[in-house]
Amino acid sequence: MLSYFARRVWQGFLVIVVIICLNFFLIHAAPGDPVNALIGTMAPTPEYMEQVRREYGLDEPLLWQFLRYAARMAQFDFGESLRFRQPVIDIILARLPATLLLMGTALVLSSTVGIVLAAAAAKFRDSWVDRVLTTTSIVGFAMPAFWLGQLMLIVFALNLNWLPAQGMYSLRAPSDGFGRVLDILRHLILPALTYSVYHLALIYRLTRVKMHEALAQDYIIAARARGVAEHRVVYVHALRNAILPVVTIIGLNFGFMLAGSVLVETVFAWPGLGRLFYEAISARDYPVLMGIFTLVSGMVVIANILTDMLYAVIDPRVVYG
């Protein structure tokens, strides 16, 4: 098992190397002068262009350039944003908390609700509850998340005026204390709900399948044979076993979830990493795009490793070392 763990870490390292290669490749393979990819097409002065050329060693042999680039990446030096003229890493880190708040809320919401609903549906298999929930999940699964966001915005913010439509804060709200927390929460509801729906559908469908598999296991019959009540059979014996693969899927889908956050943040102008990504696309701010891509990849790698470790904690059968 230790070797498996080591393999995961090694794989993560390789992924990071591949990501750096891809970035490097994109800079050099994109049409036009590589310097344009680094500082944009509307460079302020020839002197600045020269400076960047020197910094990245663009006149030197490719291999040397690559090593130089990799070394910078290893130090989290993703270059300077074309739009803000600030180090990319600073901009990214400033936006990260908002994304984590949104993702965290949505993840907790969708996992809990999804798992509870799936367990209930499995208990009442083929009942109307099961059918309604399952049909809904299939539809939720097929919707583009950002379109659902647009619909939510239209209905709850723009027409019913229940909730704010854009951003994370109101200008009129108090700038500190409880009032500010409340204000942020009000802004959080719609994006978090939108974001939850897709994952809810995913988690519900997965848990339901795993519940059916678990309920068909022999130890379920054995539990019933010793007089265990049905709700305990479902919620303790079956659910605990069904949840394991679900945890893995949630962990391994981390990259997918971040992609979802780009789209949802764009709909609601939520000032996180995703919104930054969108703005960088519009502004052709290549260093920021690559910086986010690299950082997100690193987060995915770490999430994968953490998932493995978590799995080892929950499942007694997995032993490292």
């Binding site: 990259g255 992609a259 780009v262």
Partner: peptide
């Protein structure tokens, strides 16, 4: 390795660059 790379982000990069 390709499965671990966040593909949506890479797709955006590729389309943005090319």
């Amino acid at each position: 390795i390709f499965q671990v790379i966040p593909r949506f982000f890479l797709a955006v990069l590729m389309v943005a660059f090319f």
